[in-house]
Design a binder for these strands. Structure first.
Ligand SMILES: [Zn+2]
Ligand SMILES: [Zn+2]
Ligand SMILES: [Zn+2]
Ligand SMILES: [Zn+2]
Lengths: 172, 172
DNA sequence: ACCCGTTCTGTTATAGAGTAACATCAAGGT
DNA sequence: ACCTTGATGTTACTCTATAACAGAACGGGT
């Protein structure tokens, strides 16, 4: 496969960081995994698995669905990407590489999905996760993973009037 | 289609109630929609669309994917069922038919999904929804719909030891 | 009763998301 | 060299969901 893919300097730096984090944990950010993470970061928006596959094929002829799903599974396990359930899509974790000190805690995140422009914002609000954990505990339920996603309109899109901007596929 | 499907008296009563609620709103709980809602209620667990389709076909030969998806879309709009994103499945709303007074407020619900037995519990915790709404507002984000789901172990399954009970497909 | 717009349903075909199963390959240790 | 482990290649599915268009049924006005 063609290893000479170059992302922006910022992304290459994040990828190097991700690589270090994996190494510290005894896992390996292989070429394919690195490339997929790069594609997710480069997109900056939720990416569908098959959309990633198409772009993956530009550098890795012969890539098939399992190729990208395996890479995504790994990245999810490492906390480097999140899956947005409402969109069946994937985004890079905003926090994993900023606090990159081998902290393998899986942080509980919340996502704000703008219907208008498609942008996804990742929050890390301990209060919300805690409230949910407490509500579960009241019913004797032990939570091991959670999905918290909100759909609506972001600040930027609320500022604009009834716009024809933003991707057409995100309009409704 | 065969209209003479009989569910349990309890479910038939809920279906009649749902029918009234729809009528008050100017929408119609047609035979197919009523049947699908009945199947979801009857199952009492998250039901996949194609699982519903199979059971729908017992009474409605010629039912196809759009048949069940249209019915589900309607029931979702009416707040009579919820979609569990993490399972790509549907459950009947616990609250819609209990407080059946034409209140078309879409309540914000949370779901506890037991990995072990597959049971889903619906919560309606105003605190959690409010906390999420507030967190969004801090970023200028206006929330119009949200998904809050937690996966873990329910009280009953925690009581049992390492069990071989519960549906095999829910084990991991 | 009849007409007509709207809503609902039938039907076919296809797109999109995800996985099973098995072969192959590469790296590292003995 | 041999074996083990983890990663990738490859084929073939399954499951989830929707597009597009045709026909039937309903409901309101005349
Ligand atoms: Zn994150
Ligand atoms: Zn926006
Ligand atoms: Zn509900
Ligand atoms: Zn359980």
């Amino acid at each position: 496969m063609d290893t000479s893919v170059a992302f922006s300097p910022r992304i290459e730096r994040l990828l190097d960081q991700a690589s270090s984090v994996c190494a510290e944990r005894g896992s390996r950010l292989t070429d394919i995994r690195r490339l997929v993470l790069g594609l997710v970061l480069d997109r900056g928006r939720p990416s569908g698995a098959y959309e990633l596959l198409d772009r993956l094929r530009e550098n890795n002829r012969g890539a098939a669905p399992p190729t990208v799903y395996r890479a995504l599974d790994f990245l999810l396990e490492q906390g480097l990407v999140h899956r947005i359930e409402r969109l069946s899509a994937f985004v890079a974790c905003t926090h994993a590489l900023e606090h990159a000190h081998g902290c393998s805690d899986f942080h509980a995140a919340q996502f704000l999905i703008c219907r208008h422009c498609g942008e996804v914002t990742e929050l890390e609000n301990r209060g919300i996760s805690h409230a949910l954990r407490a509500a579960g505990a009241e019913h004797g339920f032990h939570i091991s993973a959670s999905t918290i996603e909100a759909e609506g309109t972001c600040a930027a899109c609320r500022a604009k009037p009834a716009g024809m901007d933003g991707p057409a596929e995100s309009r409704q």
